[in-house]
Design a protein around this nucleic acid. Structure first.
Lengths: 207, 207, 207, 207
DNA sequence: GATGAATGAGTTTTCATTCAT
DNA sequence: CATGAATGAAAACTCATTCAT
């Protein structure tokens, strides 16, 4: 609990944050410690004052990225009213081709490419936590929809499948050139809502 | 019978086949041309007689793997009768933890890690073709089920979503330690069959 | 004196002749035994039936090139009448930018680059012989001019300098981009002829 | 006095200078980055901290050699009084067989072997600059001789030819074993001075 | 005699990590 | 604490030469 120790953790985050953009810009394969040091405007040796090795700093960068994405997610979803819109927001990550979102999407892609090619326990754990976080958020959305009377009670059974479906879209978008996720999402969501939307809401939509 | 002229294409495949296990065992990151040569029991230079570069041999290994998997898939699915069993077989890739299947699964994981971290056009193309192949097979399965009266006609609308769902399971299994795909699959398939199975078939099941 | 032995020498020349163009086209640095074999339409191993090593075949190619150039030189110079024209023809090698001549010029450039970078005795000897041949030809030209009364007797003293001057032009043309040898040659030859041309010839020219 | 910041340009020159001898001793063909590193007593990787690639360090070595030669040339020529002696000094490069001079001569030979076998723009440019420098110096020598009344005014017309002649001697010395340049030079210079020396100077000499 | 398949020594180059200052 | 200079292990790739057929 010495202030020195706190500073170390703080500085770790600062450095990682500064390097955040670099990762998704040039990709992990071309990322070097030299470039990271230059990007954070510190010496190459200083990197090793705060990080065990290259893997460590990459992990920190990705952690911060994910943490920020989650924080942002929670903040923004508050302002969304209907369940359908919330679901759409949940899928925004895989639907939105804006520069900002693609930054996050590509960062996640780099992240997965590590997870797939290395047996990195921390990365696996981080991924599990992230998955759990977002699956929980999806559950929240559905539960709220049920409580508000928008959705049928059985909707809760679909949480898992919806979550998996989103992962599938992610994989396809990552592994295909110019893969159109929007159309597939629309088709999916229409079929889904036929099953889980409460009648009065459906009618409103039809009218 | 003199080896004066070697069938280069044939030898390419032989070498790639011999190295096939190495790829999924040690992963692309630790794969070196030296190791590949040793694994195929040939000289380092010989690799370059048959492959342009390291990327070329990796591509060949993966191509062969995928090609063999597809061939095997077509052969085996012929002997399966019911639609439900066929679907299960379609998902076998992501459900079966046997050594043999994990070999293929891990090979595909290595493959995706390349696709994610490099901008390799051939890899993207191969991926597209493979995706198309399997989505088509899924369509065949569903269509057959409809024609045989097992499934409702609307089932065809679900092909895309089922395909995406499988991809989602793949991503999750690849990025999570000991991820249990079976339970999720069962839940998904039960919900799905409630929607697309013809009544008489459902009753049979219930009885 | 067995016919087999004669055939070997003959075949050496045939192979070298076929590869002659390849040398100046791609340069010694990029010349490989594989390419040589392909160019002569024989097997790589066959090269080593007729040549000791790579250096040996390069030497043979260059020898042939030089030999042919000399043969051609002797044939063509016969049809030239005046001394000035003969001298011009002597300098043709360094003045003529035609494709054909540049082929020979570049071949000689490659040749010198070997002589300069390796301590190859045969190359040195070949070069000496070639130098001697052409210096002798220059002497012939000048002597003939004197005998015909075109040149002053002292002209013979300039043979060596003229020869060296030509080498200087060669070096400059080889080591400079778009080096204009013609103007320098004209200037040189005019000054020279002021000194060595017999008066009556000079007058003719002035009138 | 901390070595935290090394003057990269300075160190470049230092390394290149240390490797200078190696180049002319073993020649470019046998020069490897490993040997260069060992010669400069640094690690192989350190070479790449200061040079882009192998070509880059070779270029630096040669540049330094040429630069030093020019500096030395200017310094020494100041102390020479007569034009004839100055001319002799100008030709020293191709006449002097002392170890020191041969070092420079061989370095230039290696340099030309690169220029001849590669299409290296920087090398071409360096060569042009060097040529221009020395042709200008030759002009200075002749002009001075004219101004001092040693030489006839027409001597200036011979600058170019003298320059080319020197290049010819260089080529011959480089491509011939034990080529005697001195005799040829003497013959040349005597003929030349018959033409361009002012009468009183000639008489002095004769007397 | 002819051949081309096989090879491995040798080359350039990269870059995570160390360590003296 | 901070640093950047130094490094060498490791990697991809080349190609002259050998040799079994």
């Amino acid at each position: 609990m010495s202030p020195k120790f706190v500073n170390k953790i703080q500085k770790r985050k600062e450095i990682a944050y500064l390097c955040s953009n670099l990762l998704y810009e040039i990709g992990i394969k071309k990322l070097t410690v030299s470039k990271l040091a230059k990007c954070a405007d510190i010496g190459k040796g200083t990197i090793y004052e705060y990080f065990e090795n290259k893997e460590d700093i990459i992990f920190e960068i990705i952690s911060i990225n994910i943490y920020n994405y989650q924080k942002e997610f929670l903040k923004k979803i508050k302002n969304i009213s209907t369940t359908k819109e919330k679901l759409f927001f949940f899928f925004k990550f895989v639907l939105d081709d804006s520069k900002d979102n693609m930054r996050d999407f590509n960062a996640y892609k780099e992240y997965l490419s590590i997870v797939f090619s290395e047996k990195n326990v921390r990365m696996y754990d981080l991924n599990k936590d992230t998955n759990n976080f977002f699956e929980k958020r999806l559950e929240d959305i559905i539960n709220e929809g049920i409580n508000k009377g928008e959705l049928k009670a059985i909707a809760i059974n679909f949480v898992e499948s919806i979550f998996v479906f989103e992962k599938g879209l992610i994989l396809l978008k990552m592994s295909r050139k110019n893969f159109n996720t929007q159309d597939i999402y629309k088709n999916f969501i229409d079929n889904l809502f036929d099953l889980i939307l409460e009648k009065n809401y459906k009618k409103e939509k039809d009218v």
